[in-house]
Simulated scan of single mutants.
Amino acid sequence: MSEDDAMVDEFFSEVNDKYYPQVIEGLEQLDGGEIADGIETLGRPLHTIKGVTGFMSGFESASSFTHKVEDFMKKVQSGDVEPSPENITVLSESVNMIFQVLEQLRDTGTPDDEETNRVLGLINEASSTGAGGAGPEAAGVEVEERDGVAILHVKDKRVHLDVHRNAITKPIIHAGPGNPVLLNLEEVLTFNSGSWEAVAELVGIFDVSVAGLSPACKQVFYSWGFDETFAAYPDVAAYFKSREQPQ
């Protein structure tokens, strides 16, 4: 057995014993509607498969395909692609296709280009629709003044575009430097990284906290490290309770 053959055997042993069980768990979470948890579970084995196959002779196409699936998964995670049932189905099929490509490369040396191109077409179509239902209009923000705090109740279900970000940043600026502002996101399903970055640029001048993060919002918030910029609370009540405690 050559060194390359030994590496392939060892890799597929890891795939069968370790990575595929993790992927099955992640796919089951997606199927059960646990989108954020499912993506987090899938991320670890897919990232490893992408990296390892990139260094395995003859498996480079698997690395490239996995990279495209991983990019699509990140778009769903960030909210750039709506986590609709249709798009989650595309994601699940794409993940399963990675393992078919691996087996095809091992057994025949070539992937089924017709099938992989079909799946990539589904990914491209889903990606081109973006966040879906957000539309060009913004539902905006309702501002409530309570105990010296400007509470911004964000009404857009998905905060992805400049029009949605501007609806949030304008009342923050209007509140004035140093005055406490609380973003209440309890009605928001997804809040992508670009929108977090737009608000983060104001922190330091403006006192901004967040509350009511959905699972998808929370996933982006913590995975991108925005918890180092904003204080986050489970809900509005928890925020005001924290203000009652001695500083």
Results as ranks from 00 to 15, higher is better:
E3Y: 13
E3N: 14
D4T: 15
D4M: 11
V8Q: 08
E10Y: 07
V15S: 07
K18L: 08
P21L: 06
P21A: 14
E28P: 02
L30D: 03
E34D: 03
A36M: 08
D37L: 02
G38P: 07
L42W: 06
R44D: 01
I49N: 06
T53G: 01
G54T: 14
S64D: 15
F65R: 06
V69S: 10
V69Y: 11
E70W: 13
Q77R: 02
Q77H: 11
P83F: 01
P83W: 08
S84W: 12
P85I: 01
E86T: 05
I98N: 11
L102A: 12
E103D: 15
Q104G: 02
T110R: 13
T110E: 15
P111Y: 09
V119K: 09
G121I: 11
A126W: 09
S128Y: 14
G132I: 03
A138D: 01
A138L: 02
E145G: 10
G148D: 02
V159L: 02
H160R: 08
L161K: 14
D162F: 11
A167Y: 04
I168T: 03
I172K: 03
I173M: 02
I173N: 05
H174D: 10
G176M: 04
P177G: 02
P177Y: 06
L182A: 03
A198S: 12
V199D: 07
A200F: 15
A200Y: 09
L202T: 05
V203G: 07
G204Y: 14
A216F: 00
C217A: 07
K218D: 01
V220R: 07
Y222R: 10
S223N: 06
T229M: 00
V236Y: 06
